[in-house]
């Protein structure tokens, strides 16, 4: 569950990227965050995974107030989250397998457990036959699937995706979309920031609209 109370984020003194946002997202929900460029979608995401702290207001993730979280606890917040970006953010010198294994490695999991889990997730995203490849030997869609596998390998309670299909072709977009549906079905709360009307049209879900940092719409179809 994610709760925001009067959250404001101002990077500079006189203008705020987010302005007095209050909203609640239940466990297991699938939510689009939408709005024009500069509306504050990425800022909202960054607040949720603790890359930024709000200027005002409170944010709770699974009942934990992350605005008061000491930075030493931040890694442990992120271990419960999966984060997906427009630019994939893969380790280009590591294989597909190693990329997906990385979060588990960071958490100090046992090796046999890692192998099993990684193979299972790669199979889920349909890349189990390319696990020795390097990211740059894959198509953009495949790279994003690796990134999603990396996010899902920890069974995240929250999956954050910031324009995950922004760099991809429309037909690939729908393939990627399917993966988010699967993630949601496996129990993750999904927050997906996107411009893509196509996505929202093919798979209508609750949509939160931002504009110039304000909440201007919250529609559940």
């Amino acid at each position: 569950m994610i709760q925001l109370y009067g959250v404001t984020k101002a990077y500079q003194k006189d203008s705020s990227a987010l302005n007095d946002i209050t909203l609640k997202i239940d466990k297991g929900e699938f939510v689009y965050i939408t709005g024009p460029s500069g509306a504050g979608k990425s800022t909202l995401m960054r607040l949720l995974y603790g890359a930024e702290r709000p200027s005002r207001g409170q944010i709770l993730v699974d009942g934990q107030n992350i605005t008061r979280l000491p930075s030493s606890r931040l890694p442990f917040l992120r271990r419960r989250m999966g984060i997906v970006f427009q630019d994939f953010k893969l380790l280009v010198r590591r294989s597909v397998f190693e990329n997906v294994a990385f979060p588990l490695e960071v958490q100090g999991r046992q090796r046999f457990e890692i192998s099993k889990k990684v193979y299972q997730i790669l199979k889920l995203v349909g890349l189990e036959h390319k696990l020795q490849r390097l990211p740059l030997e894959l198509s953009g869609g495949e790279q994003q699937r690796v990134a999603i596998a990396r996010a899902l390998v920890v069974d995240p309670s929250v999956l954050l995706a910031d324009e995950p299909t922004g760099n991809l072709d429309p037909e690939v977009t729908l393939e990627i979309m399917e993966l988010f549906k699967v993630a949601n079905a496996r129990g993750s709360t999904v927050l997906l920031a996107t411009h893509s009307r196509e996505m929202m049209h093919h798979f209508p879900r609750r949509t939160i609209a931002l504009e110039a940092g304000r909440l201007v719409g919250d529609i559940t179809p």
Binding site: P75, L90, L91, F102
Partner: peptide, 16 residues
């Protein structure tokens, strides 16, 4: 720096 960023994003502690 990409690697450092990614490590932090997947929950690596600063010490790690």
């Amino acid at each position: 720096r990409d690697e450092l960023e990614i490590m932090a994003l997947v929950g690596a502690t600063p010490l790690f």
